[in-house]
Design a protein around this nucleic acid. Structure first.
Lengths: 190, 190
DNA sequence: AGTAGCATGTAAACAGTTACATGATTAG
DNA sequence: CTAATCATGTAACTGTTTACATGCTACT
C-alpha cells in the first residue's frame, strides 16, 4: 500500500486536485512514484474516507468544479508510521532491459531503435528535472539550498530522478552503439 | 505480461530449474527483472503449457528431483515478437523515495538509518555485479569483449544494474548527509 | 537438535493496467 | 470543426505479494 503514502507525500506540497496530481504522477514529474489518473481518484476517495486527507470543493466558472485535497494530522501521523517501518529493497523492472538481455537471440534493428527512443526520452526528462531543480533552489547554489531551505524532500527525490535518467540515457546509447557495431562485425556464434 | 518474457530471456543462458531461476530473480542477480519463486513456478507451468519452453525431469540422488527448462523455437519466436513490439516507459517505484519526498514532515532518525542501510545494500550489489562482469569478460577488456563475445545481452543488463546501484549508493549517502546536517542546523520552518 | 539449502507448489489478498464513459470550454 | 485541456470516475482484467504447505538432506 505505497501509492497511499506517495499521494500523502505529494500533498505535502500544498493543495492539489485529482487532476493536478494525475499530471504530476503521470507524464513529467513522476520522480518518486508513478500512477494513472484512475488510481489516484480511487486512492483520494479512500484517503478521504479514512480521514488522512481533507477535500474542499472549489466552484469554478467556465470549467468543471474540482476538489482540492490536503493532508490532515492523521495523515501526517500515518506518514510518520510509514517512514518508521522498514523499507523493502527496490528493483528495476523494465521491458527494455528484458529485451537487451535477449539481444543475442533476437533481431537488432528494433532494439536499436527502441534504445535510441528511450535515450531521447531520458534526455527530455534530464532537461525537465534540471529546470525543476533550478526553480526550486532559486538564487542559492545547491549546497546552500540543501542546508537552509525549508523543504528539501522534493529536491532530493528530483536529484535521484535526474541521476537515474542520465544513467538510462548513457546506457541506452552505449548499448545501441554496441549492437550497431556487432551487426557489421558479425561475431562468432555457436 | 513481461515476467513471461523475462523468464524466456533468462532461459537463453541455458537450462534452469524453477529453484535456480528463483535464486537469480530474487536476491542477487536480479539485474533485469525481479520475481518471487511462486510466480516463477506458475509462469514456468504456463510457458510449458503454451509450448514456449520444454522441461525435462532430472532424477537426483540425495536431493529432490527437479525439472530443467529450455526455450523452444516457439519461445524464441515469442521473444522476437516481444522485442519488436513498442516499449512502455519505465518508472522508479521505491518506498524509500516516497519517504525522502516526505522528509521535511517526518522525523529524520529512521530515515537516515534506512538510507544508510540501503547504501550498504547497494554497495554489496556493486561488488557482486563487478565480479559477475569480470567473470563474463574473462581475460578480455570490456571494449574487446563487447565487440567479439558470443553473447553480450547479460553483460549489458549487468552494466545497467551496476550503474543503478552506484547511483543508489551515492544518492543515499548524499541524502543521509543532508538530513544529518539539517538536524543540527535547524532550518527555518513556516 | 536446529538451521540452511534443495525443490515445488496452492490460495487469498492486494496493487496496477486497460477499456469504457461523460461533458464542458478553449485554442487552432 | 477538431483537438486539447479541465475534471471525475466505473468495471473488468492482469499481475504481484503474502501466507500457507510439504518433505528430504547436509552441516554445525
Amino acid at each position: 500500500m505505497a501509492l497511499r503514502h506517495a499521494v500523502l507525500a505529494a500533498l505535502l506540497d500544498g493543495e492539489y486536485s485529482g487532476y493536478q496530481l494525475a499530471k504530476a504522477f503521470d507524464i513529467g514529474v513522476a520522480n518518486f512514484w508513478h500512477a494513472l489518473p484512475q488510481q489516484l481518484y480511487a486512492e483520494l476517495t479512500r484517503l478521504e474516507g479514512d480521514g488522512l486527507i481533507a477535500g474542499r470543493k472549489v466552484i469554478q466558472e467556465n470549467r468543471p468544479d474540482k476538489r482540492l485535497f490536503s493532508v490532515t494530522d492523521a495523515g501526517l501521523a500515518e506518514l510518520e508510521r510509514f517512514t518508521e517501518a522498514s523499507v523493502k529493497p527496490s528493483f528495476i523492472r523494465d521491458d527494455l532491459l528484458v529485451k537487451v538481455q535477449a539481444a543475442d537471440s533476437v533481431s537488432a534493428g528494433p532494439l536499436i531503435e527502441q534504445l535510441t527512443e528511450r535515450a531521447a526520452a531520458a534526455e527530455a526528462r534530464i532537461e525537465l528535472f534540471g529546470g525543476l531543480l533550478r526553480q526550486m533552489r532559486g538564487a542559492a547554489d545547491e549546497e546552500e539550498f540543501l542546508r537552509r531551505a525549508e523543504r528539501v524532500g522534493p529536491y532530493l527525490t528530483c536529484l535521484r530522478g535526474l541521476a537515474f535518467e542520465r544513467d538510462t540515457r548513457d546506457w541506452c546509447r552505449r548499448s545501441a552503439a554496441v549492437l550497431r557495431e556487432r551487426r557489421h562485425t558479425a561475431p562468432a556464434r555457436t
